[in-house]
Amino acid sequence: MTTFSVWKFDEPGGAEHAASLLESAEADRLVKIVDHAVLSWPPGADKPETHHKHDDPKRGAAWGALWGILTGALFAVPLVGAAAGVAIGALAKATDGTGITKDDLTRIRTEVVPGTSALFLVTDEGNLDRLGERLRGTDKTLLTTNFTEAERATLMETFGGT
């Protein structure tokens, strides 16, 4: 099953550290990484920095578009007021049919704040419980959305190719 997951860490370098563990987790067959991105938000910074890791070089630009849309719309507007609601609503419409819900987007937007980081993953054949064990010792929160086959097809068609 394809899974979109966001692991939120309580320190700006936590997601980068977790990303460094992905290669060995994939070699141990805990997950098959389709693509991932690391978002880091240092304390005092106006907005977070996102680094797309290009797991699939042939489709890197397409996956980069997903991460750009997610992080740009979620974090480029103020957290309060109507602007945040409009941005999340527009983003929910852009991800309609992919299995990424408005509630997921709202939770990401409210939990990823200055001083934290997040690891965004799209995986196949993953055992997220065992991956979480691999990440033990870090302050993390897991948000996942398991895709139906139709949602996976929509996500892959929209951002990852066929």
Rank of each mutant, 00 (worst) to 15 (best):
L135R: 00
T144D: 15
A92F: 08
K93G: 10
L66G: 01
F9H: 12
T2Q: 12
G60A: 14
T71R: 04
E149Q: 15
T154H: 10
D55K: 11
K93N: 12
F4T: 11
A82V: 07
A92Q: 05
A18Q: 00
T123H: 04
E133R: 13
P12F: 05
D46N: 06
T98G: 03
A61P: 00
R134V: 04
D28P: 01
L21R: 13
P114W: 15
T50I: 12
T158D: 06
N146A: 12
S40R: 13
H52G: 07
A94Y: 10
G13E: 09
E16W: 03
L30W: 01
L143C: 09
H52R: 14
K58E: 15
A15M: 12
L105R: 06
G132Y: 02
T148M: 13
P57Y: 12
G68T: 07
D35P: 02
T138D: 02
V38E: 00
T145V: 14
A62R: 08
F9V: 06
A153Y: 04
H36V: 09
T141E: 14
R109E: 07
T50N: 01
G132M: 06
G85K: 13
V122L: 12
E157M: 08
T116R: 12
V38K: 03
S20F: 10
A61H: 13
A118E: 09
T101V: 11
G160D: 10
F75D: 09
A83Y: 11
V34R: 06
K53D: 13
L21N: 08
G126W: 00
L30F: 03
G85N: 09
S24E: 15
N146Y: 13
A15P: 02
D129E: 15
E11W: 00
V112K: 08
V113C: 08
G161P: 05
G137Q: 08
L119W: 04
L155Y: 03
R152A: 11
T101D: 07
V38M: 11
E49I: 04
T98L: 05
